[in-house]
Computed example of a mutant assay.
Amino acid sequence: MAMTQHKIEEFIDLLREHWLKNQDKGLTQLLQRLADEAGCEQALSEISDDTLFYQLKMGETNKDEMIPGIAKDCEEDFKTALLRARGVIE
């Protein structure tokens, strides 16, 4: 339950920031715009929460930028990644 609550709070924070930048839009218009930007063609009611969440989180980043959750685990070279994965180095 705590993870769900955290996700809801993060979604609301992201939505708040986005909505403040687009105050001329109603909530459903804003959500539809996010869905359109994500490339969704189905009706708004058919789009997953994760799609909207991802678009809020990553929509304004450079398309070549790595996803933050993946970037934190990247290593510059394979040897370091292997040693870290085996617990040899921290």
Rank of each mutant, 00 (worst) to 15 (best):
I89K: 03
L56V: 03
L14K: 12
D49K: 09
E60A: 12
M66Y: 09
T51V: 15
A2L: 11
M3T: 08
D49C: 04
E9M: 04
K63V: 06
A85V: 02
A85K: 07
L56I: 03
T4L: 08
R33Y: 09
L83C: 05
E76D: 10
Q55M: 09
L27H: 06
A35D: 04
H18E: 15
L30K: 02
H6Y: 08
L82N: 14
Q23H: 07
A81N: 06
L31T: 01
H6F: 06
Q23Y: 04
E9R: 12
G26D: 12
L15T: 02
I47N: 09
A38C: 00
T61M: 15
T51G: 03
L30H: 07
D50M: 11
I89Q: 00
I47P: 04
D13K: 15
G26K: 14
L31C: 04
L82Y: 15
T80M: 13
T80E: 14
G39H: 05
D50R: 07
L15K: 07
Y54C: 05
S48I: 02
M58F: 02
K7F: 10
L27W: 03
L56Q: 03
L27R: 07
G26S: 15
E46A: 11
E17W: 01
F78T: 13
M1L: 12
G59L: 07
L52Q: 01
I67F: 05
A43H: 11
A71T: 02
K79H: 06
H6C: 03
W19V: 00
G69E: 14
D49G: 13
M3R: 07
L31E: 01
L34V: 02
C74S: 03
K25R: 07
R16D: 14
D64K: 10
Q42H: 02
L44K: 13
G39K: 01
R86H: 15
E37M: 06
T4H: 10
V88D: 11
A43K: 14
E60L: 09
L30P: 00
Q5P: 00
T80D: 13
L27Y: 12
L27Q: 10
E10W: 01
E76I: 11
Y54V: 07
G39I: 05
E41V: 10
T80I: 10
T51D: 03
A43I: 04
A43G: 04
T61P: 00
A71Q: 13
I12N: 07
K25D: 08
D49Q: 09
M3Y: 03
L44G: 02
N62C: 08
E41I: 07
E37H: 03
Q32Y: 11
Q42S: 03
E75Y: 15
Q55D: 02
D64P: 00
H18V: 01
A43Q: 11
K57T: 01
R16Q: 12
Q5V: 14
A38E: 02
E10A: 07
G87L: 05
T51N: 04
E75F: 15
E37K: 08
I89G: 00
Q5C: 09
L20S: 12
T80G: 05
V88E: 12
Q5G: 04
I47M: 11
K25A: 04
D24Y: 06
